[in-house]
């Protein structure tokens, strides 16, 4: 395709002209860092018109589209579900997409990446250590018969559900990890998110993996490096309460260690789930996946 024919990429900035007038212009003081050029992050100021419903993420995208296309910002859903746009706005851990600029009551909005995770570029941090710790606590149901009974549910009472339901709202944005005082110095500390998930799966009545998870969290850099500063719960944008979960995890380790290890997981329901059975699916699956066609 010739270069002249190539269609120019066009970013559509919401045009609110005639619908709304900007209420005021706000200075966005954005932390910038380019690993190839800079040794240290620095701040650069941008002037952004702010409407009634402009969020910090809208402001950053306005900068990216209109003022400085080199700004790197990670975002996805724009409605506080994916947890990609976690950053520190005016010194406080927030989701950029859920933070209304006018609600900050400030003419200068300082935006910088979250703490305690390696900085890749501008507002983007490397979340891999965070997710590695999440994986480390085995955030899934562990029991011997989980493969054999995939066509029926495990029984669970509403009370048993309530024990952990709050913690399932975690979107893994990393804000608690950024707010926690221990992660600020302890790179091996599992962090509030992973520990809360360890509790969430341990207390789940369908789970029988307490012994495995206790080995992970009962470590010199595990649950006991939490000193209940509560910063994680104060920072959480979804109302999850990691501080609560970690104290409960400590309680299990102190008082119910053996009871949890020998606890019988919830039984499976008598009722077979309708639809194709696992055996049928397995039967229809090819023994080997076809290899991709050779390049011509």
């Amino acid at each position: 395709m010739a270069a002249s024919e190539q269609k120019q990429l066009e970013f559509k900035v919401p045009n609110l002209e005639g619908v709304e007038k900007p209420i005021k212009n706000v200075i966005f003081r954005v932390s910038r860092f380019d690993p190839d050029r800079d040794r240290e992050p620095y701040y650069r100021d941008y002037e952004v018109p702010v409407y009634r419903f402009t969020t910090v993420l809208d402001g950053l995208l306005y900068i990216k589209y209109n003022l400085d296309p080199t700004l790197a910002v990670r975002y996805s859903c724009r409605m506080g579900v994916c947890g990609s746009c976690a950053m520190i706005v005016n010194g406080r851990e927030r989701l950029a997409c859920k933070t209304n600029v006018l609600s900050l009551n400030s003419n200068i909005v300082t935006v910088r990446p979250i703490n305690n995770l390696p900085l890749i570029r501008d507002l983007v941090t490397d979340l891999r250590p965070f997710f590695e710790k999440h994986k480390k606590v085995m955030p899934y149901i562990i029991r011997d018969d989980i493969e054999a009974h995939q066509d029926r549910e495990f029984l669970q009472s509403p009370a048993e559900l309530n024990e952990y339901m709050m913690l399932t709202d975690c979107i893994k944005c990393g804000l608690c990890y950024s707010a926690c005082p221990t992660t600020a110095t302890d790179a091996l500390f599992l962090g509030p998110q992973a520990l809360a998930q360890a509790y969430r799966y341990t207390i789940d009545s369908r789970d029988a993996g307490a012994a495995l998870r206790f080995d992970v969290v009962d470590d010199p850099h595990g649950v006991w490096r939490c000193h209940f500063a509560g910063a994680c719960s104060a920072a959480c944008p979804k109302g999850v309460d990691p501080a609560f979960a970690i104290q409960q995890l400590k309680k299990l380790l102190l008082y119910k260690r053996n009871a949890m290890k020998s606890r019988k997981p919830a039984p499976e329901s008598e009722k077979v789930r309708e639809g194709t059975s696992v055996e049928e699916v397995l039967k229809s699956m090819p023994k080997e996946w076809p290899s991709p066609p050779a390049p011509k």
Partner: peptide, 15 residues
């Protein structure tokens, strides 16, 4: 090349 970005004692414990 990439800053560790950890806040340390003053920025973390004493934040």
């Amino acid at each position: 090349k990439f800053p560790r970005n950890m806040r340390g004692v003053l920025g973390g414990w004493a934040r």
